[in-house]
């Protein structure tokens, strides 16, 4: 990277730090810090006592939400940070799920091995798809991702020797008996990946994603390797999806091609759009919303996805920061109130 490019990146980094320290938001950084720690502690506390508060079904849904949180975080990096579009995330989840299930049931691999390998399988698929398409313009990845979703589905259904066709793979045994412990495991993995992705945002790679999203041509001219960084974003997205697939396979104990189709890809996409593309927490908010909402949409029958379409269209047109963005705005308003500052007063 050239000298001026790195200078520009470091100045961007300063802006980002200022933003994170609350200066651009017009709130006192001490207040923001306190608020962060309090909310983190509250969140962790809630996670710890959640299993004793809810019934078995709700705990299953919460586990599912934490699994989709992992898959959706990948989409956040790809779409929210790098500005690419993938409409095949469920296929990557499926590859991870089948990899984990086959290794666990046929080859006796342990949970500690299958989950990282499931993530790796997502990375490999991302390389196969991303390598030819990411050198080209953005819409090629979007189209190729739908195509890959179909390829993976055809393989799951028809490559019976490996996938057992529509019958799927059964009796995948979880590493732990108790639902509560498995819930904690999924949440822990989710939070670990979230922490890793948070720190990635401040590294040159994370900053390059932002630069590419804002202006691909200018970023390329500054010396950022466009195709390479897009591929990294796609690999991260594939890894998250693969890990989520592995966790999903153990959680259900049974997997079949049903559940990794285009419909599921669109559900994951809806999660990140409604949750909020620009924030990693958007993945969490979206996953929780879309896991707990569908039972309330049953009156629409099999057409309930029409609501997702309308919601996605409205959010992307009028509130592209999504639910997480709205929550953070409320937070800033609250902090400005207790600091007695205004946004304009501090940014000037």
């Amino acid at each position: 990277m050239s000298k001026s490019a790195s200078a520009s990146v470091s100045s961007h980094k300063e802006t980002l730090q200022q933003y994170q320290h609350g200066k651009l938001l017009g709130v006192k950084s001490s207040h923001l810090k306190t608020f962060r720690y309090v909310s983190y502690l509250l969140f962790l506390g809630l996670i710890l006592i959640l299993p004793s508060l809810v019934n078995g079904l709700q705990l299953r849904l919460a586990t599912l939400a934490s699994i989709w949180f992992v898959a959706t975080m990948g989409l956040q990096v790809l779409m929210g940070q790098a500005g690419l579009v993938s409409i095949g995330q469920a296929a990557f989840v499926g590859v991870g799920a089948y990899t984990a299930a086959i290794l666990a049931t046929k080859h006796g691999f342990s949970f500690l091995l299958t989950i990282p390998i499931a993530g790796l399988s997502g990375v490999i698929l991302a390389i196969i798809v991303g390598f030819p398409t990411l050198k080209l313009r953005g819409h090629y990845l979007a189209i190729a991702s739908i195509g890959v979703g179909q390829i993976i589905l055809v393989l799951m259904v028809n490559w019976r020797a490996v996938t057992n066709g529509m019958d799927g793979i059964t009796s995948i045994t979880r590493p732990v008996e108790s639902n509560t412990t498995y819930f904690y495991i999924c949440v822990a993995i989710g939070l670990f990946i979230a922490a890793a992705l948070y720190s990635l945002r401040k590294t040159p790679v994370g900053l390059a994603f932002t630069a590419l999203r804002t202006d691909e041509t200018a970023a390329g001219a500054m010396g950022i390797s466009v195709a390479w960084h897009y591929l990294i974003a796609f690999m991260i997205s594939g890894f998250c999806a693969g890990v989520a697939g592995g966790l999903f396979a153990y959680n259900e104990g049974f997997i079949s091609p049903y559940g990794f189709d285009l419909g599921q890809s669109i559900v994951l996409l809806t999660m990140i759009i409604i949750g909020g593309l620009r924030h990693i927490s958007g993945a969490l908010v979206g996953a929780i919303l879309l896991v707990f909402l569908p039972p309330n949409l049953e009156f629409l029958g099999s057409s309930y996805m029409v609501i997702y379409g309308v919601a996605v269209l409205l959010v992307i047109l009028f509130a592209p920061d999504g639910a997480a963005g709205a929550i953070l705005k409320l937070r800033d308003k609250f902090l400005r109130k207790i600091s007695g500052t205004s946004r304009e007063g501090v940014t000037q």
């Binding site: 819409h139 593309l277 269209l313």
Partner: peptide, 10 residues
């Protein structure tokens, strides 16, 4: 591109 693509998809 992302916003336009998502809108047509939706």
């Amino acid at each position: 591109f992302l916003i336009i693509a998502i809108s047509t998809l939706a």
